[in-house]
Amino acid sequence: MWEILDLELITSGVRLSTPLILAALGGMFSERAGVVNIALDGIMIFGAFAAASVAYETGNPWLGLIAAVLVGGLIAHVHGVASIRYQADQIVSGTAINILAIGAPAMLANAMYGSTSITPNIKLSIPTLSIPLISDIPVVGMLIGEYSLLIYFAFLMVPFSWFILYKTSFGLRLRSVGENPEAADTAGVNVYLMRFYGVWLSGILAGLGGAYLSIAHGSAYVRNISAGRGFIALAALIFGRYNPKLTLVACLMFGIADAFQIRVQGVIDIPVQFIQIFPYILTMVVLAGLIGKSQVPAADGVPYTQSK
């Protein structure tokens, strides 16, 4: 039993937390701007399908990444138009996109490849980067020395997002429209545009999270590839109190929990199904314990109408 608690657990936890980090950072930009984005899971699925199919058709995984960014941005844009421009209920709009993500990629996969559940394997995936010198150090090299490029990108996005959010005028405006849109509007900030920026960034990052699943961690799109990771990312975001650094810690915790349930299968004499629900149970516990205590942006989920 104890032999599974080794460095491999942490490295596989890092790999599994990467889509959570990307989606949670995306969700953070959206929620900080005052738009609840529960469509992260659906956007991840769309991004995963777009990445896998374009990477297969072109033979270039980087073009798959661009496709994931494009499709993620466009799907998030639909959510933005519905919830910001036409002031629809943000939960309903997000749910609609999640439902669409169940059927639309399956339909397209069937039309393109004759199967609703899987796309053909891609020839090349996103390459792995081995950091010179660091990868040769015994323990440190194993922990941070050799991962997919998208993993490094996701981890670099954490300080970058923190900088954007807390050290730039753009971040200040973004936070202001999420806290008090009337005051921001009075100060001359374009509330609608800033909210669209937040939703746009969430779509791009969630799309990249989905692309990681299909062309970096795996080599094809399979049906329901996200397996609820968009919702787990939302839980990590709430657990991290809408702060990039704390969100990173929360995502790592969920990722390691996921890696643990994979490694523990077959070691303990418990039915696999019970082991597999461990990350989701953890998500529910975190949400039940922290959802009231987390500092939600004051105008989060509240549509804004500009006074004439």
Partner: peptide
Amino acid sequence: VELNDGEISLIHWSGGFLFVIYL
């Protein structure tokens, strides 16, 4: 189509460059 190492690195460099440019 079997790709050799040169072609693979060309795909990665050109694709990565395009991705960074686009983003």
